[in-house]
Computed example of a mutant assay.
Amino acid sequence: MESFPTPERGTAEPATPEPGLILPVWLAAAARAAVQGLLGEPFCPEQPLELEPGAPPRPVLVEAAAPLAAGWVLAVARADPGPEVLDLTRGQPVWAQARWLEGPGHWLELVAGEGVGVIASSGAPCLSAYARELLQRTLQPLLPPGRRLELHLVIPAGRRLAERTSNAAFGVVDGLALIGTQALVQRSAAPDQLQQALEQLRRLVASPGFAGALVLVIGENGLDLAPRLGLPPQLLLKAGNWLGPLLVAAAEAGVSQLLLFGYQGKLIKLAGGIFHTHHHLADGRSEVLTALAALEGLAGPELACLHQAATVEAALADLQATQPALAARLRARIAAAIEQRSRAYLARYGHEALAVGAVLFDRSRQLCARGPLGAPLLAELRGGGAA
């Protein structure tokens, strides 16, 4: 199989790009190299990517590119999430396979290949808005007028790696989701991630028109889902795992209303008084769920079954199937407990004026519970629409 020219032995090795980039960036770099191959250009191991609109191009390393049969070109990159980051994609090869399409249609036909997650309800590739925009910004300027592109993205180990993630809890199957709102990896358990969040908090509070409300989202899924549900993007702050310090910092910065918005299987930790939510530090979700279920009247074998479920999501889904009214009451109790524990946490630091509401979503990315303060606050922040 003929390959595109690569640097000869003895020549200077290409500079290693700065690490710390999310998975979609490495796939975009591989895709660009594949398109260059379609255009007959020599292989370039450093692909210049405009990671943010208008930003100077940054080199992202691609390992190889080669033509295949039937007009395909394959390019390979290797994910590097950066030092001191616990990320299961480290060192994993990612592939982009491209060929020209004939006839009319959209300029890009994107296909989730092996190991790339798809949305179970639609079968569509699971890409965040940032990932899609990055592909468009990277590839569309390369296409000659009238040309259309078919692009297959592949993560060879993605299906196996996805079993160690919460993708399935959000309705993503068959592989890893390509999500993220910016190019750089956010280290949710590291102190510098807290510092970044605190700096963003200060910017939000100092921005013109700030009226005292803030939405604290937990993780990329919450950050992606919140605007789709009508929450103003300018009020969103990604907390990662540092919920306790950010609650206190928000109160000290003058926030008067704060909405906690997150996945039920993560936010339930707050109902147990756990305010740093990384699983390496503390868990206790099963115990919290069982205690709250007991307070709702569940007992005996049914309570034991709830405790033995593999995840909070599975436990609540099983309860929903057999006792839907009880499941709804339990979810409401979880949301109320999150609010109560958050108020108690703030009171320990002398901040009792901050009103904290909680809104939870489930694996299907549907709202499933609102706390006593969360329900009206959600409606208010969505402009008074139905909550």
Rank of each mutant, 00 (worst) to 15 (best):
V248M: 06
N221L: 10
A239I: 11
L216M: 09
P227I: 02
G222L: 02
W242Y: 09
R203E: 15
L198C: 11
L258P: 13
P232W: 01
L229Y: 10
G240P: 02
S256K: 14
E252I: 05
L235S: 11
P245M: 02
L231M: 09
D224N: 12
A250R: 03
L198T: 10
P232K: 01
K238W: 12
Q182N: 12
R187T: 10
V217Q: 03
A226N: 00
R203N: 09
R187Y: 06
E220L: 11
Q195V: 15
A250F: 01
G230H: 04
G209S: 09
A253Q: 10
G222C: 09
G240S: 13
L243Y: 02
Q196D: 12
G222S: 03
A251R: 12
P233W: 03
Q193Y: 15
E220H: 06
G222R: 02
P233V: 03
E220Y: 11
G180N: 10
A251I: 07
L247N: 11
L216D: 00
V255R: 12
V217R: 00
N241D: 14
I218E: 07
V217T: 08
L259V: 11
P208T: 14
G240C: 01
L243S: 08
N241P: 01
S256R: 15
L246K: 02
S256P: 04
A197I: 08
Q195F: 13
T181I: 08
G230M: 00
I218N: 13
V217A: 00
L247G: 12
L237C: 02
A189V: 06
L243K: 02
E252A: 13
G209E: 04
L214V: 07
S188K: 05
A189G: 09
Q193P: 02
G219R: 04
R187I: 06
I218D: 01
W242K: 04
E199M: 12
W242Q: 07
A226Q: 01
A253G: 13
G254W: 05
P245G: 05
G244E: 07
L231D: 09
G230L: 01
L216R: 01
S207T: 13
Q234Y: 06
R203F: 07
S207G: 12
I218C: 12
R187P: 06
L258H: 06
W242F: 12
P227K: 02
S256E: 14
L246V: 07
R202L: 13
A253P: 10
A206V: 10
P233Y: 04
L236R: 11
G212T: 05
Q257M: 08
L229G: 04
A239M: 11
V248I: 08
L223P: 01
G212C: 07
T181V: 13
Q193H: 14
L201K: 10
P232R: 04
L225M: 05
P232N: 01
Q182P: 03
P233K: 01
A197Q: 07
L243V: 15
L216G: 04
E252V: 09
Q195Y: 15
Q257P: 08
A253Y: 05
R187Q: 14
G209Q: 03
L259W: 00
A190G: 10
E220P: 06
R203K: 14
P191L: 05
V215K: 04
G209M: 09
V205G: 01
G244D: 09
Q193M: 14
D192N: 06
A253V: 04
L229Q: 08
G222M: 02
T181F: 13
L243P: 01
V255G: 07
V255C: 14
A197M: 03
T181H: 14
L216K: 03
A190K: 09
